[in-house]
C-alpha cells in the first residue's frame, strides 16, 4: 500500500501533463498539476534549509572534526533566515504605507539586501571565479595532443580562443579577401554553426531519447528506485 499509492500518484501526475498536451479540453488539468509542482518546489527550499540545520546541528552535538565551521554555517543560516522572514529593517510599500509587512523583503539598503550584496554575492561569485584558475591548471596538465581526436579538440579550442578575441584579427587579419573564410573570426563562426551544431544536435537527439525512455520507465512503474528501500 505504501508503495502502490506513490506509484499511482506518479503515473497520474505524469500522464495528466502528457494528455493535457494533446487536447485543449484537458489543458487546464496540466496547468493545475504544474502549479502544484511549482508550489512543492518552493516547499523543497524549506526542506533543504531544514536538512541543512539537521546535519550541522548533529555535527556540532557529535563534536565531529570541524564542528566549529558547522557553527559558522548555522549562524549564517539563522541570521539570514530571521532577517529575511522577519522583513527586519524593511519599510512598508509605497502603495500601502499603513501595512508594516507590505514592503519588499529585498528592499535596497535594508539588512537582507545588505546580506545579499555584501555576503551572498561576493561569496557565490568568487566561488565560481576560482574555476578560471583550475581550468588553466587543467589545461597545462591534462590536454595532450596524443592522437588525431585530441588534436582536433585542441585545434578547435585554439581557433575559438583566438577567434573570439581581437587576437584573431591580429593573427589572420592580413589574409586577402578571397581567403576571408579562413580568417579566425570567420572560422570560429563556421565551426560553431556547422560542426558544433552537427555534433551537439546528435548529442541532443541521443539525450532526448534517453530522457523519454527514463520518463516512461518512471511513469509506468518499471523504475521504482526513487521510492527508495526501507518500510514497505
Amino acid at each position: 500500500m505504501k508503495r502502490t499509492i506513490p506509484l499511482l500518484i506518479t503515473a497520474i501526475g505524469g500522464f495528466v501533463l502528457i494528455i493535457a498536451f494533446f487536447s485543449s479540453y484537458t489543458q487546464s488539468w496540466g496547468e493545475v498539476a504544474a502549479i502544484w509542482f511549482d508550489i512543492l518546489a518552493a516547499i523543497a527550499f524549506i526542506l533543504g534549509g531544514g536538512n541543512l540545520m539537521k546535519i550541522h546541528l548533529k555535527k556540532i552535538s557529535d563534536r565531529k572534526a570541524g564542528w566549529a565551521y558547522s557553527g559558522v554555517t548555522l549562524i549564517a543560516f539563522l541570521t539570514t533566515l530571521i532577517i529575511g522572514l522577519g522583513k527586519i529593517g524593511v519599510n512598508p510599500s509605497e502603495q500601502f504605507p499603513d501595512y508594516a509587512w507590505s514592503g519588499s523583503y529585498r528592499e535596497v539598503g535594508g539588512p537582507f539586501w545588505w546580506l545579499y550584496e555584501f555576503a551572498f554575492k561576493p561569496l557565490t561569485a568568487t566561488m565560481f571565479a576560482m574555476l578560471a584558475f583550475y581550468v588553466a591548471s587543467a589545461a597545462f596538465r591534462a590536454f595532450r595532443a596524443k592522437n588525431i581526436e585530441a588534436i582536433l579538440l585542441l585545434g578547435t579550442a585554439f581557433i575559438i580562443l583566438l577567434g573570439r578575441t581581437y587576437a584573431g584579427v591580429w593573427v589572420t587579419g592580413w589574409l586577402p579577401e578571397w581567403l576571408e573564410g579562413l580568417k579566425l573570426e570567420n572560422l570560429t563562426v563556421t565551426i560553431m554553426k556547422v560542426f558544433n551544431t552537427a555534433g551537439n544536435r546528435a548529442i541532443m537527439i541521443g539525450i532526448a531519447l534517453g530522457i523519454v525512455s527514463t520518463s516512461l520507465k518512471v511513469l509506468l512503474g518499471v523504475d521504482r528506485s526513487y521510492l527508495g528501500g526501507g518500510e514497505e
Binding site: A136, A139, F140, A142, F143, R144, L161, R164, T165, A167
Partner: peptide
Amino acid sequence: RMGPQLVAHLLMILLIIVGN
C-alpha cells in the same frame, strides 16, 4: 572585459603548448 579576456586566452594557449 575583452582586454583581460584576450590576454588570458593567450595564456591558456601558451599553457597547453608548453604542457604538450
